[in-house]
Amino acid sequence: MIWQIDLAVLVLVVICAIGALAVKDLVGASILFGAYSFLMCILWAVMGAVDVAFTEASVGAGVSTVFFLAAVFRTSRRSKD
């Protein structure tokens, strides 16, 4: 594993997580959550968990973000917090 990149990405991940929760618009939050899972994917690749990274890549990019967007599409994108 590569601790330098790991450390750098960890910082990004935390920022991204806070960002995803802080954004008031749910579409924005979903998109940021997508970015969060990209970063997680790198994190796992860096730690040598290729299979996990692969899963996260396919799930995070291909499916879960789309699910979020689909759900927001069918509900409402406004959020009070």
Partner: peptide, 14 residues
């Protein structure tokens, strides 16, 4: 190589 049923399935689904 990395991957397998789950990842492939997700890609197909995607």
């Amino acid at each position: 190589s990395p991957g397998g049923g789950f990842q492939g399935g997700v890609i197909l689904g995607a």
